[in-house]
Design a protein around this nucleic acid. Structure first.
Length: 190
DNA sequence: GCGCTAACCTATTCATTAA
DNA sequence: TTAATGAATAGGTTAGCGC
């Protein structure tokens, strides 16, 4: 019963007073009221009944106004959280995009090198050795393997890939923590 | 299980204010 | 005058409680 009376009291908002003939206009809260509400919100994002009544008395506002302010404040806070989340995800996306572009360029280079090596191998296996100008072609397959391995190894070292040393994996991505966190305000679990 | 109620959330309205 | 901001409302959902 006591709760019911309180609920009734809370419904008597300024707007309803306006509708009842009382021309009380919608008013902005004063900076002192906002400071107190903000401090309270920073301490605890949820509003328990005791604190609502306490703030109501302290600030000379209806409990309903306190509740509404907290609701709206939580909504604003959540929007900010989403903005922060969007920013951090965008940053991650940009980094991954650049990494992908680099890797694609590397793949192109390596494919070109493989094609060149393959054409040389074909020339050697057919027993055809062409010496044009100053160029000398090695005719042993072992030498070819060595040179190929050396080139690939060099590429792998440059890019830190191969032998399980890939610089970025899906697992890495999945373990990157997003930041559901807004400094100065405790994380809100709905 | 069902109805009631309070509290909460999201979307929206509307008054105020600053540019 | 208008866009941005914030107080308040409407309507829906959820959880707790008594029956």
């Amino acid at each position: 019963m006591e709760v019911k009376q309180q609920a009734l009291a809370e419904t008597s908002s300024p707007m309803e007073k306006m509708n009842c003939g009382n021309q009380e206009k919608k008013k902005r809260l004063t900076s002192d009221q906002l400071d107190s509400l903000e401090n309270s919100f920073q301490k605890e994002i949820k509003l328990d009944p005791d604190r609502k009544m306490k703030l109501s008395k302290e600030l000379g506002l209806q409990p309903r106004q306190i509740a509404v302010w907290f609701q709206n404040r939580r909504a604003r806070w959540k929007n900010k959280q989403l903005e922060h989340l969007y920013d951090s995800l965008k940053q991650e996306f940009d980094v991954i995009s650049k990494e992908k572009q680099k890797l694609e360029e590397e793949v192109m280079k390596l494919k070109t090198m493989l094609r060149e090596q393959a054409s040389r191998t074909q020339q050697v296996s057919t027993g055809y050795t062409e010496i044009s100008g100053e160029e000398t072609v090695e005719s042993t397959s072992e030498a070819l393997r060595c040179s190929k391995r050396g080139t690939l190894h060099h590429q792998q070292q440059q890019n830190n890939i191969g032998e399980g040393n890939c610089s970025f994996t899906l697992e890495d991505y999945n373990t990157v923590p997003v930041l559901p966190y807004w400094p100065g305000v405790p994380y809100y679990h709905p």
